[in-house]
Computed example of a mutant assay.
Amino acid sequence: MAKKNNIGRRPQGTPSTGRPRGTSAPVLEGDETLVDLVEVRDQGLDFFERNRNIIVFGAIAIALLVAGYFVYKTFVQIPAEKTAMAEMQQAQIQFERDSFNLALVNPGQGGLGFVDIVDQYGSTKAGNLANYYAAVSYLNVGKYEAALDYAKSFDASGTLLPAMKYGVIGDAESELGNMDAAISSYRSAVDAAGDNFVTAGYYLNKLGLLLRNQGKTTEALEAFKRLKTDYGQSPEAAQADKYISMLEMAN
């Protein structure tokens, strides 16, 4: 007898897709998946219903925060930045003239000094930069504590400003007699300068001179040798051989 064609039929031993017969009828895997999906949906709806207020108010709060940020940036921060830059121009002019006292508090022509720029616009980029200008100005008029405070308040970023910040701190600490702190700051200035041979060479030379003056001849010799080898293009490197010879004789 010819075999029946089984195409489209169930493989032997698999459950029927028809209505289950009796309580012991097997449950199809597809039916289990459908039940699971329904349960997940029902649980999700139940969670939303129980926490509707929290979810809605949370979404509103996030939307208000985002909107508030854009309103603040557009109508407060950006205008304040422009105003601070305009107010600081006259102080910068006095700074370039080495009129540091005027630059700090009374630059003239209605402009604000660096101290007032920091006080009124400290949250802006211009206000932050005014910290550095104020630090250098106070350093030049001999008020080293104030110079140190403003330098430490300056939030330096980029590849040049961090080195300059540490350099000013080193100068102020040195003038205050805090030599170990000054040495540490000059080291930080050199490290922050990286491959910038002008800035790094300038502060490495200061570090070497200070170490020499403190009687730390071995460390000073290392500093001047590094100045010659790593930053030989810097203007200060021209004097390195002289100090190297002096320090080698002293050791």
Results as ranks from 00 to 15, higher is better:
residue 168 V to G: 01
residue 212 R to N: 14
residue 175 E to M: 14
residue 217 T to I: 08
residue 86 A to Y: 01
residue 192 A to L: 11
residue 10 R to L: 15
residue 39 E to C: 07
residue 162 P to K: 00
residue 67 A to L: 13
residue 58 G to V: 10
residue 249 M to E: 15
residue 95 F to P: 00
residue 30 G to I: 09
residue 127 G to W: 01
residue 119 D to Y: 04
residue 205 N to Q: 06
residue 132 Y to R: 01
residue 239 Q to L: 11
residue 71 V to R: 03
residue 81 E to W: 03
residue 137 S to K: 00
residue 243 Y to T: 05
residue 19 R to P: 11
residue 53 N to I: 15
residue 188 S to E: 12
residue 177 G to H: 07
residue 139 L to C: 00
residue 188 S to I: 08
residue 131 N to D: 03
residue 5 N to Q: 07
residue 168 V to W: 01
residue 230 D to I: 06
residue 208 G to P: 07
residue 14 T to Q: 13
residue 72 Y to V: 15
residue 196 N to Q: 11
residue 90 Q to V: 12
residue 115 V to L: 07
residue 132 Y to S: 02
residue 118 V to H: 03
residue 164 M to C: 06
residue 197 F to Y: 15
residue 107 P to S: 08
residue 31 D to K: 02
residue 208 G to M: 03
residue 238 A to E: 13
residue 47 F to H: 05
residue 174 S to G: 15
residue 23 T to S: 12
residue 80 A to G: 06
residue 13 G to R: 13
residue 148 L to K: 15
residue 200 A to M: 09
residue 242 K to L: 13
residue 49 E to V: 09
residue 2 A to G: 10
residue 23 T to V: 10
residue 78 I to S: 15
residue 171 D to C: 00
residue 23 T to P: 01
residue 107 P to N: 06
residue 227 L to A: 04
residue 192 A to W: 07
residue 164 M to E: 14
residue 145 E to Y: 09
residue 225 K to S: 07
residue 92 Q to T: 02
residue 235 P to Q: 06
residue 188 S to D: 12
residue 91 A to G: 03
residue 196 N to V: 07
residue 84 A to P: 14
residue 6 N to Y: 13
residue 228 K to P: 05
residue 247 L to R: 03
residue 76 V to A: 05
residue 140 N to Y: 03
residue 125 K to P: 01
residue 177 G to E: 01
residue 246 M to C: 04
residue 177 G to K: 08
residue 116 D to Y: 04
residue 106 N to S: 15
residue 6 N to H: 12
residue 121 Y to W: 05
residue 106 N to D: 10
residue 68 G to S: 07
residue 148 L to P: 06
residue 22 G to A: 04
residue 85 M to P: 00
residue 189 A to Y: 09
residue 217 T to E: 11
residue 142 G to W: 09
residue 166 Y to A: 13
residue 102 L to P: 06
residue 109 Q to N: 14
